[in-house]
Write a protein that binds this DNA or RNA. Sequence first.
DNA 1: TGATACTGATTCGAAAATCGAAGCAAGGGG
DNA 2: CCCCTTGCTTCGATTTTCGAATCAGTATCA
Lengths: 116, 116
Amino acid sequence: MGARAPRPGVPVRGSESGRPVMAALDLLGRRWTMRILWELSQAPTGFRELQRRCERMSSSVLSTRLDELTGARLLTLHSDGYHLTPLGQDLVEALSPLDAWSQRWARETDNAAAED
Amino acid sequence: MGARAPRPGVPVRGSESGRPVMAALDLLGRRWTMRILWELSQAPTGFRELQRRCERMSSSVLSTRLDELTGARLLTLHSDGYHLTPLGQDLVEALSPLDAWSQRWARETDNAAAED
DNA sequence: TGATACTGATTCGAAAATCGAAGCAAGGGG
DNA sequence: CCCCTTGCTTCGATTTTCGAATCAGTATCA
């Protein structure tokens, strides 16, 4: 597998600096990555079930993402499916204000649309 | 332009639900999007300067992303360059715990690598 | 009136990422 | 054995991204 997941300290796509946050933005900025973390924060989930929850995302990309996230030590696979590691749980928690923000975004977008 | 930026309330790639957070994950999950927001949170920046800061990302994608983010009311263009709107600033603030997390990620990745 | 040099932005062929249906190997009942 | 489910791979088609060239608009200086 072309396991070339971004890691802190290693220069990544779009940044020569290797600054951790840039590696994080690279990893999270790939299609489905945040969605997968989001789904796994609800409950451990197997491969096929995860695919179902994500509106049948392609299995090839799911497999690639799971490799990347596992390589980044954010996931592990057990008998009951993929789990967030403590580090992965912290990431989801760091991302959680996004939920509240998105609701404000929705309200303001509605208001703006109503004004048009 | 294929101006098809995700908006809350509108079903987006990977989600029929139209749940705001899914629209946000879709928008943010596109290449360079978070990086652009990150750069603009430091200071207003013009098109070409923004391109320079992002390691010379392609102008076509930059243009597309700026359209999407402007359409989502997260940016505006003034004489001194692109600005975050208040909504956009709130998003960056919602994302800011990511910086602290990424540093912990870096530490733990170093430790794990040292054990190998 | 050029000439030059910026700006934000577009075009378009090439390259890379993603899609998605099919299939594989392993495991667990029946 | 057969059948079903699992995690996962393969591979050709589609979509996205890349990136160099280019455009139009504005300012500056001669």
